[in-house]
Simulated scan of single mutants.
Amino acid sequence: MSVLERSLQQGDAPNLVNIEVMRNRSELFRAECTRLIQQTDKACRRMQDDDNKRLDQRVRDIQFLKKELELKLEEIIVEIDDLIALQSRVAKALQACKEPQRVTVLCLEERMKRVPSERLHDEVDRELLKERDAIEGVASVLQRVVEQITEQIRLNRSAKYHLEQDLKEKFEAQCIDNSCALMTTHSINTLQMSKNTKAGLPSLAVTPKQWENISDINIAKAEQQKSNSLSLRALVESLLEQTAADMQKQVQATTTAFQLNIQEIKSAKSQMEDQLAKILSECASQQKIREDLQVAITENEHVLTLAQTRLALRRQRPAKEQCYDPVQSQLLAEVQQLTAHINKLQEAVAQSEEEQRALTRCQLELQENIEIKANSLYIDEVICAQHREPIIIHTF
């Protein structure tokens, strides 16, 4: 039996005032709940708008720094390439010093084989000694230059590495912030697993100023190394020009001292010998490049087979997974490019074989003419002149 029924049986009437108060209080509470719901909903929307604005601004900040980093990375890459090309030039110049030095020493030794009455310390000997000292000095300078360029390339590559790492991190941060900007309350469930797996990772928070300073430092270091590279390249260019001029001047002075003992036929024979040496070297180079082409063809065929196999395997994906994604596009483009590369390499092999046959004909012709000229030369005129003829120092 309820309280109201008992009250009625006992003759007590219900307290309507209290009931009215309770009802009014309930209505007020419902109104407060409705207001609270609207207030929290409005606050949530405002906070989400603020979040999106800040995320958009953050993405723009990252994009700005990325452009700065990419520009500096492109510059340092170009500078590295220029330094590598210059290093190759200096290395070739250094290598080019070996033959003139060997010939100079050989001429000195050959002139010591003259009979005692003719073994005079004449002008030719003096010029040969100057030439030897000049070549040795140039070789020593060029060796130090190679080491300096190597070190500068290392520093440039270090700056390039830090720029690349910074760019990689900026890209990852941009992707994450873009994902955050696109995220909604309906999409967070799909990220729950990823969120849980990374929950234990430590937070390495830095201030916005520190974050910006990291990239500024990398850019400043790259700019400094670029400036150093430019200065080094200018110095090396000047040095190469000067050393080449000095060597050319000394070689010319020594050659002038020899000219009285050189006849026209010797010049022709020496030129043919030089050309023969180059032809033989080129024949060997053609053989080597043809082997390299065959190796390249094989390697490209292996890569092509791999790409084709991957395509075939990806066709076995479930029907719903058979999408023309970037991987599929890349693999199809890769097959086309590799096929084109292989065709070009095969064409190059055929052209190399034709060049080899032409070089062989030139070689036989040169050998025949050199043998004819050899019998026409005096021994004392040929030995030194024969070896000195290739010593022509051009600008490095």
Rank of each mutant, 00 (worst) to 15 (best):
Ala296Asn: 10
His341Phe: 12
Ser227Asn: 10
Val303Phe: 11
Cys180Ala: 11
Ser229Ala: 08
Ala159Thr: 03
Arg111Cys: 05
Asp274Tyr: 01
Asp81Pro: 06
Pro116Leu: 03
Ile391Tyr: 02
Ser267Ile: 11
Asn369Asp: 01
Glu27Ala: 14
Arg233Ser: 14
Ala91Val: 07
Thr298Gln: 11
Val206Tyr: 06
Lys344Tyr: 05
Gln248Asp: 12
Arg111Gly: 03
Thr104Met: 03
Glu172Ile: 09
Lys288Arg: 11
Asn189Arg: 08
Ala348Arg: 02
Val236Ala: 04
Thr197Val: 12
Glu368Ile: 01
Gln38Val: 10
Val21Ala: 09
Met112Pro: 01
Thr40Ala: 09
Ser231Ala: 14
Leu232Thr: 06
Val59Glu: 09
Gln286Phe: 07
Thr34Met: 05
Gln337Cys: 08
Lys170Asn: 07
Leu239Ile: 02
Gln286Leu: 12
Asp325Arg: 02
Glu127Arg: 13
Ala93Gly: 09
Glu136Asn: 01
Ile342Met: 05
Phe396Thr: 00
Leu94Gly: 02
Ser203Cys: 13
Gln152Tyr: 00
Ala234Ile: 04
Glu20Thr: 13
Phe29Ala: 13
Gln9His: 10
Thr184Asn: 03
Arg102Ala: 06
Met247Arg: 05
Leu4Ile: 04
His341Cys: 15
Leu304Tyr: 06
Asp82Cys: 06
Asp50Trp: 14
Ser117Cys: 06
Ile393Ser: 02
Lys269Ser: 02
Gln10Leu: 14
Asp380Arg: 00
Asp82His: 03
Val146Trp: 03
Glu169Val: 05
Ile383Ala: 04
Thr360Tyr: 11
Arg157Ala: 04
His121Cys: 00
Val17Leu: 08
Cys107Ala: 15
Thr256Val: 07
Ile62Asp: 01
Met183Arg: 07
Ser117Lys: 13
Arg126His: 08
Lys42Ser: 11
Ser203Asp: 15
Gln63Lys: 12
Asn196Gln: 12
Val90His: 09
Pro326His: 04
Glu368Cys: 05
Ile217Thr: 10
Asn52Pro: 01
Arg25Leu: 09
Arg45Ile: 14
Gln386Ser: 13
Lys92Ser: 08
Lys209Gln: 09
Lys67Ser: 12
Gln95Met: 02
Leu232Trp: 04
Thr185Ala: 13
Asp246Tyr: 07
Gln143Asp: 05
Arg290Lys: 08
Tyr161Asp: 12
Cys97Ile: 00
Thr243Tyr: 04
Val78Ala: 12
Val236Gln: 06
Pro202Tyr: 08
Gln101Phe: 07
Pro14Met: 05
Ile279His: 04
Gln287Phe: 05
Met247Gln: 03
Gln242Pro: 00
Lys198Ala: 13
Arg357Gln: 15
Gln38Glu: 15
Asp133Tyr: 00
Gln225Tyr: 15
Pro326Glu: 12
Asp133Cys: 01
Gln242Asp: 06
Arg314Cys: 02
Ala296Thr: 07
Lys269Asp: 01
Val349Lys: 08
Arg60Pro: 00
Leu16Tyr: 05
Thr256His: 04
Thr254Val: 10
Ile370His: 03
Glu371Cys: 08
Glu172Arg: 07
Leu28Met: 15
Val327Asp: 10
Val327Leu: 13
Ala96Tyr: 04
Cys283Phe: 00
Ala181Arg: 14
Gln57Cys: 03
Asn261Arg: 09
Leu331Asn: 04
Ala312Leu: 11
Glu241Leu: 13
Leu182Lys: 10
Val327Met: 12
Lys67Trp: 05
Glu237Val: 12
Leu239Lys: 07
Leu106Ile: 00
Gln308Met: 15
Ile342Glu: 06
